[in-house]
Simulated assay, not measured.
Amino acid sequence: MKLSWFAIWAGILFLNPVTADCNITSQTVTCEESGKNFSKICTNLFQNVTKLSLRNNKISLKNSDKEILGSFISLTELYLNENMITVLYNHSFCNLTKLVILDISNNHISTVHKAAFAGLNQLSVLNLSYNAITQLDSDVFTSLISLTVLNLQHNLLKSLHIKSSFKLSRIVLAGNPWTCSCDLLNLHIWLMASNVTMENENTTTCTLPNTKEKFSIKMAAIQPADCKTGKDSLENTVTSTSAIKLKSNALLTALTPSNITGINGTHAGLPLVGKSWTFLVGVLGFVLSTTLLIFTAIKCPTWYHYLISYSHRRLEENDSEMSEQEFAADMSPFPTELGTNNEDPIVIFEKSHAFVSGEDGCTEDKDIDSYSTEKSSSLK
């Protein structure tokens, strides 16, 4: 039996020559690759490795590294501390379903994506200490159903939202710039309600806003009533703003031409939104014209009175005929006979057209008066 096991391991070593420092026992395969300046995870490792230490290297955990890690399906312990990791992307360890311990401390991690730990159903210990994490989504730990120890000390966290269903036995939160405000209320309530043990409780403090006074996270005077009032006021503000927007949208929808129909079912002639420049120019021209007329009437009363006093009367046909006869009589070169008696003396007179304007506005012809006087004397 021992010979058969030896033959199997010999075959594995022959097919996969390994230069890494790996120790093989009956139950575990441990590979120690620490402090070797690796920029990526090496591929010359046992596929059935159970404990892999890559501490103190220059690994950034890019896509190629994730693919290599995905081949170690038997891995139960992974140590990536003291490397150059800055971001934990989604599904970085999705194939490591048997992983129990994950240490990513002492890196430069600032961002942790929501599904970074997806698939780690057996993970029990997660170490994220000594990084630069500023914010963690509450769903980051949702898939970690077996997690019991969480180490977040010495990051840049000011608040942390944890769901009430999240269960831990030990948590480390010291060394973060926690703020004693309503943003910390969720964590404060969770710590008080759960049976979790917080390590370094005395040094895990929060600072009051605008002050340097520090209090223990568990003992901080964060009143739920005050936070609830602030939250309610914020919700009321959001609700009122939403209601105003809805009313505005409803009014705009009601006034659009597509929603207004005429008697015969045709659309009413309202200007379309975005195509009303012609309508606006017409209205503006009308207003300017009216304003100009009013200004002219006020500043120029003479023209205004002239326009008001002007009257037009159509000439009658009889008046035009009489005017033509009078004009013909005036232009006749010969004197007109005064009667049927041929013995009547003929009076020749010289016409001089001199028009005199009377006071009543009518023109008087002196020749007409002279002619009337001569005729009267001859008849006598």
Rank of each mutant, 00 (worst) to 15 (best):
F46L: 10
S34C: 14
N44G: 06
K36D: 08
S53W: 01
C31W: 08
S74A: 14
T50Q: 00
I68K: 06
E33L: 14
C22A: 05
T43F: 02
I24P: 00
D65Y: 06
S26R: 12
V18I: 15
I73P: 03
D21E: 00
N57W: 04
K66P: 08
F38M: 15
S39L: 09
C42K: 13
S34Q: 09
E33R: 01
F72C: 04
S74Q: 14
G35R: 05
S26A: 11
E32Q: 15
S74I: 03
K62Y: 08
Q47R: 15
A20K: 00
T19I: 10
S26F: 10
D21P: 01
S53P: 01
F46P: 15
I41F: 04
N23S: 07
N37V: 11
K66R: 14
I68P: 04
S60T: 13
L15V: 09
T28Y: 02
E33Q: 12
S39I: 15
L54R: 01
I73S: 00
Q47I: 15
K51D: 00
T43N: 15
A20G: 10
I73D: 05
N37L: 15
T43E: 02
T25R: 01
T43S: 09
S34W: 07
V49L: 01
Q27I: 10
I24V: 00
N57A: 02
T25P: 04
C22G: 06
I24G: 00
I41P: 03
S39N: 14
F14I: 10
S71D: 05
Q47F: 11
L61W: 09
N63K: 13
P17Q: 08
L69K: 15
L69S: 11
K62F: 03
N23P: 00
K62T: 10
T28L: 04
F38E: 08
D21F: 02
E67W: 08
L52D: 14
N57L: 08
S60K: 12
F14V: 03
E32G: 14
L15Y: 11
